[in-house]
Design a protein around this nucleic acid. Sequence first.
DNA 1: CTTTACTGCGTATGAGCTACGCTAATTAGC
DNA 2: GCTAATTAGCGTAGCTCATACGCAGTAAAG
Lengths: 246, 246
Amino acid sequence: MSEQPELPADVALMWGLGDVTKRGPKPSLSIGDITSAAIELADAEGLAAVSMARVAERLGNSTMALYRHVKSKDDLLTLMTDAALERPEPLPEDVDWRTGLTFWANGVLTAVRRHRWYAKLPISGPPAGPNNLAWFDSALGALKDTGLSEEGKVGVVMGLMTYVQGEIRLSLDLASGFVENPEAFTRYGATLARVVDPQQLPALAQVMAAGVFDEVTSFDEADEADFDFGLQLYLDGVAGFIDRTS
Amino acid sequence: MSEQPELPADVALMWGLGDVTKRGPKPSLSIGDITSAAIELADAEGLAAVSMARVAERLGNSTMALYRHVKSKDDLLTLMTDAALERPEPLPEDVDWRTGLTFWANGVLTAVRRHRWYAKLPISGPPAGPNNLAWFDSALGALKDTGLSEEGKVGVVMGLMTYVQGEIRLSLDLASGFVENPEAFTRYGATLARVVDPQQLPALAQVMAAGVFDEVTSFDEADEADFDFGLQLYLDGVAGFIDRTS
DNA sequence: CTTTACTGCGTATGAGCTACGCTAATTAGC
DNA sequence: GCTAATTAGCGTAGCTCATACGCAGTAAAG
């Protein structure tokens, strides 16, 4: 009745819209419990540690019990991608779109940084989970007073999401690469020096000669600055777009 | 002698700078053979099909033979990330930086699109393989005549890489999500309608009311347009940056 | 009280990565 | 040419995983 069957199964799960039947034993597990346990495990020991057995163990249940609530492991991973985002902090009142989007982008970044495994999960479709949509809405809301068409707003937000996505992925991948093998970073300048032939890669050689890769940056700082630099460039572009279309 | 031991093992592998010893049987496999076989397999059947056993089978060798050339499966995946990029097409002569970077960005996109699994592989460190560095050099070269400092160039290119990375990942993830489960896309508008509460997500509801999600776009086209839209916004920002600093 | 639907779980299967050690090939040094 | 050193290929086996299947117990429905 209240539930048409049109919703994809995983979307229904994320919104907690399963069929509510009353027979049988009370479930001792909820999807939320399972998802949280999986997230805690991933936070603590990395995504590789998330096996159905380990998650079940953490919940004091058997491995196969999980399959009563979740169709497959991939299903669980999808749930994790939405749950990990949590709800966005509401935008500050009465700020211009640029401040709003900067706030938003930094919010996404810090939300995701709490879960270093996030970037390793594939995105299986357009945003559909409650948290993902809340973030989507929040970014669109920041463009409220720009006079852009709805389609224009979506384009701007998509581009921003793409940039932030890229930054997240790069940043998190590099961060875990750093933990695994710091040498690759601290010795980066030296490595390039061994390997780059100025004849073949002249522009790169020139950058190296200027000493740009010499300083062993603390990496987290460098990253933050790069993110903001690229973000502001993108927002400059958006500003031009808004001027042009209004 | 000619090889200091300073290079990380995987970088040495990518550049073909292993120690050259002469004793023992002639290897019947080269690292290049293994990498190519793995890439062909991934192209044909997806990344999940790339197991050490399948790769070995394709080469007519036993599984364990591979481990004489490659430290682990992760090692092999790292090699694949560099090899899959191939060499960049040289930039057209005498074009301005903007045309150059647009050409470059589209080049990356098409190179990577040949390998749909690319986005699923983690980036373990800063660009160090021969192909990665060639792309890096190519982008830096496009900024040759801008008067930017070397550091400024690196910043601009990093931002661009980040954007393109994000686009690649999103685009490829969504594409494979589409193959797997087209409904999630064709029914996206309907799904949102079921799930979005206009009170809680007003900006999103407004976009939906404007019908932006109604047309079932052919998806590939939509994607291409989005990429270019965001790219041009970013380059607008870069143009401003160049003006400001010269 | 019986039927029904549903939860939890034990078992088993098959696939995957890789440590270990053996065999055979090839070259270095004499 | 002969011996020792070194290395490639590979068979076996151990471990971890995801998950199909079916059984047993439980709570609501009739």
